[in-house]
């Protein structure tokens, strides 16, 4: 059986709806393990003190902020090429989740930056890129909500997602270029993976897995909501068509 059979909204809903609560619980459990492990059972890093432990929120949320956009890009492409409604609605469902992940990454970044750099905000290339990513999410969501016809909205937001992805990558490199031209960028940027020891790395991996599960659960839940909303709208539209015949 082809994977595309799940592109049928009914089938998708029937298949995924039972999974959502389980995924939610699993995500909660994995996150609880990862966060408790990370916060309370890792040694304090010598130079940074306990403030470094915010990476257990910061890194996974940043990871999901980018991956959510990637998922939207893939879903948009599938919608444009194969016209599967579930795909367009999944992209729509993922956008607010991705945006919240971006906000979490920005806020935890600021909280971490305060003791480390002595400032809540620095125009560090990475931080700036995330701020721009946040703006992209805003525009994408605003366009979805502004267009009344669902198919047109799906088409136009998909085009915006494609063009936006190109410009987001351009912005990433432009920001790198811009900051190097002004300040000493490297000493402020936060290289995580390379100089993180295994004691910190394993609970971080658990937290990342938790965020992935949480993202999956939320997107499936929200996609289901979108599908149901479309179904209600379709049934209402059909009901409206009956009336003139009766009258």
């Amino acid at each position: 059986m082809s994977i595309w059979s799940y592109a049928n909204p009914r089938k998708f809903l029937d298949t995924t709806a039972p999974w959502v609560p389980w995924l939610m619980w699993l995500a909660a459990a994995v996150l609880a393990v990862g966060l408790v492990w990370g916060f309370f059972f890792t040694p304090e890093a010598e130079r940074f003190g306990s403030s470094v432990k915010i990476i257990y929120l910061h890194v996974p949320s940043a990871l999901m902020a980018i991956n959510a956009w990637l998922m939207m890009l893939v879903a948009s492409l599938i919608w444009l090429i194969r016209r599967h409604h579930v795909s367009a609605l999944a992209a729509r469902a993922a956008a607010p989740v991705g945006m919240v992940m971006t906000v979490i990454a920005l806020i935890t970044g600021a909280i971490w930056g305060q003791p480390m750099w002595g400032t809540w905000w620095a125009w560090d290339p990475r931080l700036t890129s995330f701020l721009i990513l946040f703006l992209f999410y805003l525009g994408y969501i605003a366009l979805w909500t502004a267009i009344p016809d669902p198919d047109s909205a799906a088409d136009l937001t998909s085009v915006l997602c494609l063009v936006g992805s190109v410009f987001a990558i351009l912005s990433r490199y432009a920001v790198n270029f811009w900051n190097q031209g002004l300040h000493q960028g490297a000493s402020l940027s936060l290289d995580k993976q390379e100089n993180v020891a295994d004691v910190f790395w394993v609970p971080l991996l658990v937290c990342m897995a938790g965020f992935v599960l949480l993202f999956l659960a939320l997107v499936l839940l929200r996609t289901g909501t979108e599908i149901r909303a479309r179904r209600i709208a379709a049934l209402r539209a059909r009901a409206r068509r009956v009336e003139p015949v009766r009258a």
Binding site: I132, L135, G139, A146, L160, G164, F167, S171, A174, V175
Partner: peptide, 25 residues
């Protein structure tokens, strides 16, 4: 993208400004 939308102008700014970032930089 925003032809014919009510309050299209505001939405247009929101969509276009992030795209302007690399050019501005």
């Amino acid at each position: 993208l925003t032809v014919g939308l009510r309050r299209g102008g505001l939405l247009l700014s929101l969509i276009v400004l992030p795209l302007y970032v690399p050019i501005l930089i």
